[in-house]
Amino acid sequence: MSNEDVSAVADELRGMLAQVTGRPEVLGVPDGVRLFGAGVGLDSLAGALLLRQVQRRYGVDVAAEDLNLDALETLGTLAAFIAARCRGAS
């Protein structure tokens, strides 16, 4: 998996996040900022909607594969999780 893959996924995730939250400013969220709690301050419903979009776009069911949802810590960790799964499948 190349860094370019992860960064392309992260850019797409920012677009999805802006869509599910209706907050265009999240397009500027850096890869390393925490999505929940202090940080982006997502609520848990927005997180669940994001995971639904991820499943539709990449076929990766994060909620089923990651019991503790650690993949959702930041956009960077989520992008790496998805990129690793997509690469594993291809």
Partner: peptide
């Protein structure tokens, strides 16, 4: 599948 928001809150 339905209570993913609950699990996210627990993780947070």
């Amino acid at each position: 599948e339905r209570n993913v928001p609950m699990r996210l809150a627990l993780a947070t």
